[in-house]
């Protein structure tokens, strides 16, 4: 294999890994704090993409320059989180805390079904496109190939998200409180921590990240029904590979998936999607708790 091949595989793999990491980060954060595996996470990604499509339409409407669409997408993701996180967490999931974890899994499955149709009711079935932002960063030439600057910008966005969440958790007081709640919610409550608020906060950030990934991938794709199903499977594979509840795990998982997929396209195009399942299977057999999870086999 030539150096140029390796370079392209790396660039393509990392671009692919970047949006996937943002989705998986939200999934892993919600799991880490609330112990909920959110099957509706892919739907939140889809809602984020739809919201971005709607919000960016406002930019030319108000006569603002196209660069504002980047801001519009951010606001769209925030809006989704502000609306959906309280409804889902306070309105629904809260009812099941302390009950069987699997019951909550089933509730999120129901939310997935509901959101599939709700997005359809709100936005219809016709596709939406977000054309403008993708032209903002021009093209970049890497190893004789042209890449769209916007796609490379996603790598920066992913890095910012990962860093922000990590710093937020480890370097701020609120973050330390969240860690305390992860460690033991009951004792935290006794120490005066308002655990409910921490849950809402974590869920809010998780939803925001899913919507953010959806919003910033919207310019690359055709936003239409059915985009959620594959996202949940991919982000699920990422957290399984990296280990549930671990931020570096999500990063490594996303990189493994992204690069494995890119390498497969070049070397064994027949195995493109299968390679992801294969990596997941290998990790499951040899390190079922994920590459980055402390062994925590059984709680007694």
């Amino acid at each position: 294999m030539e150096f140029a091949d390796i370079l392209t595989i790396l660039v393509d793999g990392v671009v692919y890994a970047s949006w996937l990491f943002i989705v998986a980060l939200g999934l892993t954060l919600i799991f880490g704090v609330l112990q909920i595996l959110n099957l509706a996470h892919g739907s939140l990604y889809a809602v984020g993409a739809y919201a971005a499509a709607s919000f960016t339409m406002l930019v030319p409407y108000f006569g603002l320059p196209p660069a504002f669409s980047l801001l519009a997408m951010l606001i769209a993701a925030l809006a989704v989180a502000l609306v959906l996180a309280p409804i889902l967490e306070r309105g629904l999931l809260r009812l099941f805390y302390g009950r069987d974890e699997v019951l909550i899994l089933l509730v999120t499955y129901a939310v997935f079904l509901v959101l599939e149709d709700v997005t359809k009711l709100v936005w219809g079935v016709q596709p939406y496109y977000v054309f403008e932002p993708r032209n903002l960063f021009g093209n970049v030439e890497i190893g004789q190939l042209f890449y769209v600057g916007y796609d490379l910008m996603l790598i920066v966005l992913a890095a910012i998200c990962g860093l922000a969440v990590w710093l937020g958790l480890n370097k701020t007081t609120t973050g330390k409180v969240v860690l305390a709640v992860i460690h033991n919610p009951d004792v935290s409550a006794c120490m005066g921590v308002r655990v409910n608020w921490i849950y809402l906060l974590a869920f809010f950030v998780g939803v925001f990240l899913a919507a953010l990934a959806g919003a910033y991938t919207a310019p690359l794709i055709s936003v239409q029904p059915g985009i959620s199903v594959n996202v949940i499977i991919l982000s699920f594979a990422v957290v399984i590979i990296g280990g549930l509840g671990s931020i570096p795990g999500a990063a490594i998982g996303a990189l493994v998936v992204g690069i494995a997929r890119a390498a497969a396209v070049y070397e064994f195009p027949e195995a493109e999607i299968f390679i992801i399942y294969l990596v997941m299977a290998i990790v499951l057999v040899f390190r079922p708790e994920g590459l980055f999870q402390r062994t925590q086999a059984r709680k007694i």
């Binding site: 699997v102 549930l244 709680k299």
Partner: peptide
């Protein structure tokens, strides 16, 4: 492989296994 796990981990490993079969 999975009998060591409990709760949500058990549930998740089973999903992962079924998706591997799907992929195959």
């Amino acid at each position: 492989l999975i009998a060591r796990y409990r709760g949500i981990f058990f549930a998740m490993l089973t999903v992962a296994l079924s998706m591997v079969l799907y992929g195959v």
